[in-house]
Design a protein around this nucleic acid. Structure first.
Lengths: 136, 136
DNA sequence: CTCCATGCAAAAGGTTTGCACTCCC
DNA sequence: GGGAGTGCAAACCTTTTGCATGGAG
């Protein structure tokens, strides 16, 4: 429980049944769901929620910086509610499962000024790839 | 010119006019094109090439390990013909432009065994994000 | 009471597929 | 000559959008 909901309330985020359910689904399991999986789980709790609302809400959570968009395997993005702890992702090339990992050091430090080409660099994401125990 | 075409021929890759044009387009500019941009440039050289063939060919080049799929900004993947030199990507959050960069050190080294959770880890990609000079 | 959020359904990408035809090896 | 590659168009999947309704603050 990282209390995504409570953080949202504290930030004055307008609360509705739909938004609460989406936040609960994301916060409940610490796996990385696709929008469609969020919709399925949300529908189980609140049958009248619509696909558009799930997308709207996910997009807003990403814009607020409370949720991170992760592209894994396949076309659908996955959503990671663990935005407040620095971490990276380990993706299974077989089944697309995503695990949080915590490597040492700051990846940004590896990029010297001479390799920044005038960009204002704001962050770095590392994606480790491999096969999970089940897919080996 | 890194001779993508020649490498493909040497690997016994079945050559056709369409495949040659796709390879030439990728190898010609060292920027990171979307499938649609590849189609546009390929059509300029060979008007009868079809969208499906471009997708088929790109998918095959990726499977062969000669081209890398990069997800930048937006929904469309970009294709990087520079698969034979270790490098990472610097992506502009504004316009989606992708630049190759060469940070120091091996990103895999940052992930200790204790953070691998039984995965057979095969690689790591680093995506640096920021704003390019034009978008600042 | 006033917006903002929602539902519905349609549209918009981007990518994949089925099938008959072509042409490289 | 045979099987891989191609073109066309339709299907598919994911995400976005327009618009009228509904509910939070």
């Amino acid at each position: 429980m990282s209390n995504l909901l409570e953080r949202l309330r504290r930030r004055g985020w307008r609360m509705t049944a739909q938004r609460r359910v989406v936040a609960e689904v994301l916060d409940g399991e610490h796996i990385h769901l696709t929008a469609d999986e969020v919709l399925t789980r949300a529908t189980a709790r609140l049958p009248e929620i619509s696909r558009a609302t799930v997308y709207n809400t996910l997009g807003e959570l990403v814009a607020l910086g409370e949720v991170i968009e992760v592209s894994s395997v396949g076309r659908a993005k996955r959503y990671d509610p663990n935005a407040h702890h620095a971490h990276q992702h380990l993706v299974c090339s077989g089944c697309g499962a995503v695990r949080d990992v915590h490597p040492g050091g700051d990846p940004l430090a590896a990029l010297p000024d001479s390799e920044r080409y005038g960009f204002a660099v704001t962050g770095a994401e590392v994606t480790y790839r491999g096969l999970c125990p089940d897919c080996t």
